[in-house]
């Protein structure tokens, strides 16, 4: 696969924002509040791949596979049939098992990826992974050993550094398998950024691309916004665009016009703010 080849999500408008799609063999973060469409976007990415003959895996740490079959069916995506055809596997497991299994050769996940010749994977969600690994007694010693092996003194390493090292190792394991990975991550605030930037173990710095989904309130109505904030090795659209979820899944539309402060959750009309800033002073 050439570097210029793009891994399309199949989402109208979103692939254009990404410059044609994700770069192959990369890790891509989708972050947003509950109900905004993260899992739908991820399922669409997997479904589109399967339609193109690229097998995919959904790795879930909480929602049962049954939930994905039902959610997908609402969009007319027959995940059970895809599983029967060997184009999809919805695997439920725990973060600790995933981490340690991937660290060892010939693990269950490695074997599954090879057997399916899977190219895409959705991790839904990495929030559970971060939370579980930060408190996992099973994973911590392994990481400290790996830190020492790299010449970094484990006793002096901060917890955040250990967590970041573990996350880095996990994402690299997926890259090693040749996967293009999509990770969903939860934010707890519904509008704006009231709690400040919650970077956890620094996942935003580790991943290759970072897309944020947001709710914004405009004229007493709640709309959904999408913005690509980072895409390593590729130009991307910097506009904040509106998107909707309809019978086809996510549909990305034109940028919001005449509004500013969209990321605050409560934008203002540009003319009013211009007057406030420059005229009334």
């Amino acid at each position: 696969m050439s570097y210029d080849t793009r891994i399309q999500t199949g989402i109208t408008g979103f692939d254009t924002m990404l410059g044609g799609g994700y770069l192959p063999n990369t890790t891509n973060l989708i972050e947003g509040p509950p109900g905004c469409g993260k899992s739908t976007l991820g399922m669409q990415f997997i479904y589109h791949g399967a339609q193109q003959g690229e097998p995919g895996i959904i790795l879930t740490f909480e929602a049962l596979p049954e939930t994905y079959y039902q959610m997908a069916a609402a969009f007319g995506w027959d995940f059970r049939r895809l599983e029967q055809e060997g184009l999809l596997k919805v695997i439920i497991t725990s973060p600790e098992v995933t981490q340690i299994d991937l660290e060892h050769a010939n693990g269950v996940l490695e074997h599954t990826i090879a057997q399916m010749d899977a190219k895409r994977i959705l991790i839904d969600s990495v929030t559970h992974y971060e939370s579980a690994m930060a408190h996992s007694p099973n994973a911590a010693p392994k990481s400290k050993v790996s830190l020492m092996a790299r010449g970094t003194p484990a006793p002096g390493a901060s917890e955040k550094f250990v967590e970041r090292d573990r996350l880095y190792s996990f994402l690299n394991a997926l890259k090693r398998q040749g996967m293009t990975t999509l990770l969903t991550r939860e934010t707890t605030f519904l509008f704006g950024d009231e709690e400040g930037f919650s970077g956890g173990a620094g996942i935003h710095f580790i991943v290759d691309s970072y897309t944020m989904l947001r709710y914004v309130e405009i004229m007493s109505a709640v709309r959904r916004a999408i913005i690509v904030l980072k895409m390593r090795g590729s130009a991307h659209d910097s506009a904040i665009r509106q998107f909707e979820i309809d019978a086809r899944g996510l549909v990305v539309m034109a940028p919001f016009e005449g509004q500013e402060g969209l990321m605050s959750g409560t934008p203002k009309r540009m003319a009013a703010s211009f007057i406030k800033a420059f005229v009334r002073k």
Partner: peptide, 15 residues
């Protein structure tokens, strides 16, 4: 119903 389950007793007990 979930044939691709891969987890410990603790994880399965939680489900």
């Amino acid at each position: 119903q979930n044939p691709n389950t891969f987890d410990t007793a603790e994880g399965i007990a939680r489900y």
